[in-house]
Design a protein around this nucleic acid. Structure first.
Length: 440
DNA sequence: TCTGGGGTCCTAGGACCC
DNA sequence: TCTGGGGTCCTAGGACCC
């Protein structure tokens, strides 16, 4: 079973820890520059304030109802987040920190009978230790755990809900909207409805292949996950694959020097984050934008990428290269609202010794029309492939020509274990070789 | 007048290789 | 000289998430 722990109204709850008078009162937290409303207490939600709403549209409502309003304090929220996560980790050894306020749990080692009591206990302790209230949803797949969490948030559940494959699930899926399912947006919901799939139950019963043609392998996975067949595994790896720092300006900016100043700051912050996770980057991406909400203004949005000759974590180099890109993007006739930088091609610094440990290069599994797995090119792979296929039994994992092997990195011998990157072409995949053997 | 910031993954298609 | 089939690598753009 999987669990999903979600902090209730996280940013608001953080503010409440340090100001208990806010309990029971309507509270909202604002984005950078106090532009948008990005967190709401239940009381504020009840007053009809939507997520992400621009503040200026709700000024009168806020005044009238005496809603407590806070600028965001990300340092505080980040710190509270790590407290919650380590408290959680104390009870559950295998967790995936999914976002600042959410974590997936692997509950394989827990006794199913006592699961509910255990979860109530964990919830209680987290509140005691951190002051943050959480909801816990449990299900046989990540997608169903997500769904269970939604139900756990309702008053009648007392913060914990366990979802199993049962008539109850059928009932629940029938009564929900497609968009209540993790991974289904309004866009996909519309596409699904256009072929007569109107609720999650109908999606669960749909032909996976048909869903795939409509919304890609990602949608196909959702179908299986709703059936209780796990396609998504716990990803405990923490390192980011890209790092972005961007901000909107309070006032619009026209001159190049001010843009450079902002960009240098963002680049320095990004490089800091990069070093913090002990990585080096292979290139950068820069973008600038005018204010898209001012339709009367001339609009301009542009970006550029540069790949470095050598991987680096040096602030000076990153700033220097970002200035070069800015030169190519800057046009003096526009007023700019936003600028940002993304570091690309991240690699683990301390693991770079693995580069010498390639065992196999090239394509391993290929999906042939006759559904067979075969070896593509090199004779000396044959033995190994045979062995792998034997162990895997009936389970076939295949992939297309891309992605699986980037720089021959998909299979590495590390501390005596086979590890494998995910297969993008099969709805079932795992990143852990042990899991593959277990499944087979 | 005022509208956030930071991520991941998948697909299509071009260039190139055997 | 002509041709077919298969594989790799890379990027842009478009989805989705919190």
């Amino acid at each position: 079973m999987y669990g999903l722990v979600d902090c209730n109204n996280f940013y608001v709850s953080c503010e409440r820890v340090f100001n208990p008078l806010l309990k029971g009162k309507p509270v909202i937290v604002l984005s950078n520059n106090d532009g948008c409303i990005i967190a709401r207490s239940n009381e504020a939600k009840a007053l009809g304030i939507p997520m992400g709403a621009p503040l200026h549209l709700y000024k009168t409502l806020i005044k009238k109802n005496k809603i407590f309003t806070y600028s965001s304090n990300y340092t505080l929220y980040g710190d509270m987040s790590s407290r919650v996560m380590s408290a959680l980790n104390y009870f559950v050894p295998n967790i995936e920190v999914y976002s600042i306020d959410e974590a997936f749990l692997s509950l394989k080692k827990f006794n199913v009978q006592s699961l509910q009591d255990e979860m109530f206990k964990i919830r209680e302790y987290i509140y005691q230790w951190t002051g943050i209230p959480v909801s816990i949803g449990i299900g046989p797949t990540k997608t169903l755990a997500k769904l269970a969490n939604k139900i756990a948030k309702k008053k009648s559940s007392n913060g914990v809900y366990i979802l199993t494959i049962s008539n109850q699930l059928t009932h629940i899926l029938n009564g929900m909207n497609l968009e209540d399912i993790w991974g289904v947006s309004k866009g996909w919901g519309d596409r699904l409805r256009s072929i007569g799939i109107n609720n999650p139950m109908q999606l669960q019963q749909a032909n996976p292949r048909q869903i795939r043609t409509l919304v890609s392998v990602v949608g196909e996975r959702i179908v299986y996950e709703l059936r209780g067949e796990s396609c998504l595994t716990l990803e405990e790896v923490v390192n980011k694959k890209s790092i972005t720092v961007s901000r909107s300006f309070g006032n619009m900016i026209n001159d190049k020097e001010s843009l450079k100043k902002a960009l240098a700051n963002h680049a320095a912050r990004a490089a800091e984050k990069l070093r913090y996770q002990d990585s080096i980057c292979g290139g950068i991406y820069i973008f600038i934008k005018t204010n898209r909400f001012r339709e009367q203004d001339l609009q301009y949005s542009n970006s550029a990428i540069i790949n470095f000759d050598e991987l680096t974590d040096s602030t000076t180099i990153i700033i220097e290269k970002s200035f070069k890109l800015l030169e190519s993007l800057y046009r003096s006739k526009y007023n700019y609202k936003k600028i940002g930088i993304t570091l690309l091609g991240l690699r683990q610094k301390s693991k770079s010794h693995l580069d010498n440990n390639y065992i196999i290069q090239g394509n391993l599994f290929t999906h042939k029309k006759n559904q067979q797995i075969y070896m593509s090119k090199y004779r000396d792979r044959m033995k190994l492939i045979d062995e792998i296929n034997t162990k895997m039994g009936k389970m076939t994992i295949f992939h297309g020509s891309q992605g699986m092997i980037k720089n021959s990195k998909n299979i590495q011998l590390e501390t005596g274990k086979w590890q494998m990157r995910s297969s993008y072409k099969s709805p079932f995949y795992t990143t852990n070789w042990d899991d593959i053997l277990k499944v087979s």
